[in-house]
Protein backbone atom coordinates (compact mmCIF):
# COMPACT_ATOMS: atom_id res chain seq x y z
CA UNK A 1 0.00 0.00 0.00
CA UNK A 2 2.74 2.39 1.03
CA UNK A 3 4.78 1.49 -2.03
CA UNK A 4 1.83 1.99 -4.36
CA UNK A 5 1.16 5.40 -2.81
CA UNK A 6 4.81 6.35 -3.13
CA UNK A 7 4.88 5.28 -6.76
CA UNK A 8 1.78 7.31 -7.45
CA UNK A 9 3.34 10.32 -5.72
CA UNK A 10 6.46 9.90 -7.85
CA UNK A 11 4.38 9.73 -10.99
CA UNK A 12 2.44 12.82 -10.05
CA UNK A 13 5.62 14.70 -9.15
CA UNK A 14 7.12 13.71 -12.48
CA UNK A 15 4.03 14.93 -14.31
CA UNK A 16 4.11 18.22 -12.42
CA UNK A 17 7.83 18.79 -12.68
CA UNK A 18 8.29 17.80 -16.29
CA UNK A 19 8.09 20.82 -18.56
CA UNK A 20 5.20 20.59 -21.02
CA UNK A 21 5.67 21.46 -24.67
CA UNK A 22 4.83 25.01 -25.72
CA UNK A 23 1.45 23.93 -27.07
CA UNK A 24 0.60 22.34 -23.70
CA UNK A 25 1.94 25.10 -21.45
CA UNK A 26 -1.40 26.89 -21.11
CA UNK A 27 -2.64 25.02 -17.99
CA UNK A 28 0.52 26.13 -16.17
CA UNK A 29 -0.03 29.66 -17.46
CA UNK A 30 -3.56 29.61 -16.01
CA UNK A 31 -2.18 28.39 -12.68
CA UNK A 32 0.37 31.23 -12.69
CA UNK A 33 -2.44 33.73 -13.35
CA UNK A 34 -4.49 32.35 -10.44
CA UNK A 35 -1.45 32.93 -8.21
CA UNK A 36 -0.87 36.44 -9.58
CA UNK A 37 -4.49 37.35 -8.88
CA UNK A 38 -4.31 35.90 -5.36
CA UNK A 39 -6.96 33.21 -5.90
CA UNK A 40 -7.35 31.17 -2.69
CA UNK A 41 -10.41 28.99 -3.35
CA UNK A 42 -10.89 26.79 -6.40
CA UNK A 43 -14.30 25.16 -6.85
CA UNK A 44 -14.55 22.47 -9.48
CA UNK A 45 -16.33 19.57 -11.05
CA UNK A 46 -13.51 17.76 -12.81
CA UNK A 47 -13.04 17.68 -16.57
CA UNK A 48 -10.23 16.01 -18.48
CA UNK A 49 -9.33 19.34 -20.09
CA UNK A 50 -8.68 20.82 -16.64
CA UNK A 51 -6.70 17.81 -15.33
CA UNK A 52 -3.25 19.42 -15.28
CA UNK A 53 -4.51 22.70 -13.82
CA UNK A 54 -6.39 20.79 -11.10
CA UNK A 55 -3.18 18.89 -10.23
CA UNK A 56 -1.26 22.15 -9.96
CA UNK A 57 -3.91 23.64 -7.66
CA UNK A 58 -4.07 20.50 -5.50
CA UNK A 59 -0.29 20.62 -5.07
CA UNK A 60 -0.53 24.21 -3.76
CA UNK A 61 -1.01 24.46 0.01
CA UNK A 62 -2.19 28.06 -0.29
CA UNK A 63 -5.18 27.04 -2.40
CA UNK A 64 -8.31 25.42 -1.03
CA UNK A 65 -9.55 23.10 -3.76
CA UNK A 66 -13.18 22.11 -3.29
CA UNK A 67 -14.52 19.24 -5.36
CA UNK A 68 -18.25 19.91 -5.80
CA UNK A 69 -21.22 17.58 -6.23
CA UNK A 70 -22.70 20.04 -8.73
CA UNK A 71 -21.46 23.27 -10.28
CA UNK A 72 -24.30 25.11 -8.45
CA UNK A 73 -22.41 24.67 -5.20
CA UNK A 74 -19.43 26.38 -6.82
CA UNK A 75 -21.29 29.63 -7.51
CA UNK A 76 -22.23 29.69 -3.81
CA UNK A 77 -18.71 28.83 -2.70
CA UNK A 78 -17.25 31.63 -4.83
CA UNK A 79 -19.78 34.07 -3.39
CA UNK A 80 -19.13 33.02 0.21
CA UNK A 81 -15.39 33.22 -0.39
CA UNK A 82 -15.71 36.80 -1.66
CA UNK A 83 -17.90 37.79 1.31
CA UNK A 84 -15.24 36.32 3.56
CA UNK A 85 -12.44 38.18 1.81
CA UNK A 86 -10.99 35.54 -0.53
CA UNK A 87 -10.83 35.39 -4.32
CA UNK A 88 -11.92 32.23 -6.06
CA UNK A 89 -12.29 30.68 -9.48
CA UNK A 90 -14.61 27.96 -10.80
CA UNK A 91 -13.47 25.21 -13.17
CA UNK A 92 -16.08 23.24 -15.07
CA UNK A 93 -17.00 21.59 -18.34
CA UNK A 94 -19.48 23.24 -20.72
CA UNK A 95 -22.19 20.79 -19.61
CA UNK A 96 -21.76 22.18 -16.09
CA UNK A 97 -22.67 25.65 -17.31
CA UNK A 98 -26.16 24.29 -17.87
CA UNK A 99 -26.35 23.49 -14.17
CA UNK A 100 -25.61 27.00 -12.91
CA UNK A 101 -27.86 29.27 -14.98
CA UNK A 102 -30.26 30.32 -12.19
CA UNK A 103 -27.48 30.51 -9.60
CA UNK A 104 -25.63 33.15 -11.63
CA UNK A 105 -28.31 35.48 -10.21
CA UNK A 106 -26.30 35.47 -6.97
CA UNK A 107 -23.32 37.25 -8.51
CA UNK A 108 -25.51 39.54 -10.63
CA UNK A 109 -27.88 40.62 -7.85
CA UNK A 110 -25.16 41.09 -5.24
CA UNK A 111 -22.56 42.48 -7.68
CA UNK A 112 -19.74 40.09 -6.84
CA UNK A 113 -16.96 38.50 -8.93
CA UNK A 114 -17.54 35.00 -10.29
CA UNK A 115 -14.81 34.04 -12.78
CA UNK A 116 -15.40 30.71 -14.51
CA UNK A 117 -13.01 28.76 -16.73
CA UNK A 118 -14.97 26.40 -18.95
CA UNK A 119 -13.55 23.51 -20.95
CA UNK A 120 -15.73 23.05 -24.02
CA UNK A 121 -17.41 19.91 -25.29
CA UNK A 122 -19.82 19.62 -28.19
CA UNK A 123 -17.85 22.34 -29.87
CA UNK A 124 -15.25 21.27 -32.46
CA UNK A 125 -15.07 17.67 -33.64
CA UNK A 126 -17.19 16.26 -30.82
CA UNK A 127 -17.93 12.52 -30.99
CA UNK A 128 -20.64 12.28 -28.31
CA UNK A 129 -24.05 13.46 -29.57
CA UNK A 130 -25.18 14.23 -26.03
CA UNK A 131 -22.51 16.90 -25.56
CA UNK A 132 -23.64 18.94 -28.56
CA UNK A 133 -26.85 20.65 -27.34
CA UNK A 134 -25.31 22.19 -24.21
CA UNK A 135 -21.93 22.79 -25.83
CA UNK A 136 -23.62 24.69 -28.65
CA UNK A 137 -25.68 26.75 -26.15
CA UNK A 138 -22.98 27.42 -23.54
CA UNK A 139 -21.99 30.92 -24.62
CA UNK A 140 -25.59 32.02 -25.31
CA UNK A 141 -26.79 30.76 -21.91
CA UNK A 142 -23.98 32.50 -20.03
CA UNK A 143 -24.52 35.74 -21.92
CA UNK A 144 -28.29 35.58 -21.42
CA UNK A 145 -27.55 35.62 -17.68
CA UNK A 146 -25.27 38.65 -17.91
CA UNK A 147 -21.95 36.83 -17.91
CA UNK A 148 -19.12 38.38 -19.95
CA UNK A 149 -17.74 35.58 -22.13
CA UNK A 150 -14.40 35.37 -23.98
CA UNK A 151 -13.09 32.41 -26.00
CA UNK A 152 -9.66 30.92 -26.51
CA UNK A 153 -9.14 28.40 -29.30
CA UNK A 154 -5.35 28.60 -29.68
CA UNK A 155 -2.74 27.88 -26.98
CA UNK A 156 -1.15 31.30 -27.42
CA UNK A 157 -4.48 33.01 -26.64
CA UNK A 158 -5.25 31.22 -23.37
CA UNK A 159 -3.25 33.25 -20.86
CA UNK A 160 -4.36 36.62 -22.22
CA UNK A 161 -8.00 35.54 -22.32
CA UNK A 162 -8.05 34.03 -18.83
CA UNK A 163 -6.28 37.10 -17.49
CA UNK A 164 -8.98 39.30 -19.04
CA UNK A 165 -11.68 37.10 -17.49
CA UNK A 166 -10.12 37.30 -14.02
CA UNK A 167 -9.56 41.06 -14.27
CA UNK A 168 -13.11 41.72 -15.47
CA UNK A 169 -14.55 39.66 -12.61
CA UNK A 170 -12.43 41.05 -9.78
CA UNK A 171 -12.46 44.68 -10.97
CA UNK A 172 -16.04 44.98 -12.24
CA UNK A 173 -17.88 42.61 -9.85
CA UNK A 174 -19.80 40.25 -12.12
CA UNK A 175 -19.75 36.72 -13.50
CA UNK A 176 -17.22 36.28 -16.31
CA UNK A 177 -16.10 33.23 -18.26
CA UNK A 178 -13.35 32.02 -20.52
CA UNK A 179 -14.39 29.21 -22.84
CA UNK A 180 -11.45 26.95 -23.71
CA UNK A 181 -12.45 25.62 -27.12
CA UNK A 182 -12.35 21.96 -28.07
CA UNK A 183 -10.00 22.92 -30.89
CA UNK A 184 -7.49 23.84 -28.17
CA UNK A 185 -8.19 20.84 -25.94
CA UNK A 186 -8.37 18.28 -28.73
CA UNK A 187 -11.58 16.35 -29.33
CA UNK A 188 -11.74 13.33 -27.04
CA UNK A 189 -12.10 10.03 -28.83
CA UNK A 190 -11.84 7.43 -26.06
CA UNK A 191 -9.48 5.47 -28.30
CA UNK A 192 -11.77 5.38 -31.31
Amino acid sequence: MFRADAQEDDMQREQLESAPTAAEAWPDQIYDLLKQHGVRQVGLVPDAGHARLIKRCLADNDMKVVSLTTEEEGVALAFGAWLGGEKSVLLMQSSGVGNIINMLSVAIAHRTPCPIIVTMRGDFGEFNPFQVPMGNATQACLEAMGTLVKRADRPEDVAETVNATLRLAFNTYRPTATLLGQRLLGAKTFGK
Binding site: Q41, A76, L77, G80, G84, E86
Partner: peptide, 8 residues
Amino acid sequence: PIAMGVAL
Protein backbone atom coordinates in the same frame (compact mmCIF):
# COMPACT_ATOMS: atom_id res chain seq x y z
CA PRO B 1 -22.38 26.17 0.25
CA ILE B 2 -22.31 29.96 0.75
CA ALA B 3 -21.62 29.46 4.46
CA MET B 4 -18.85 27.03 3.55
CA GLY B 5 -17.18 29.64 1.34
CA VAL B 6 -17.27 32.10 4.23
CA ALA B 7 -16.08 29.44 6.70
CA LEU B 8 -13.11 28.47 4.50
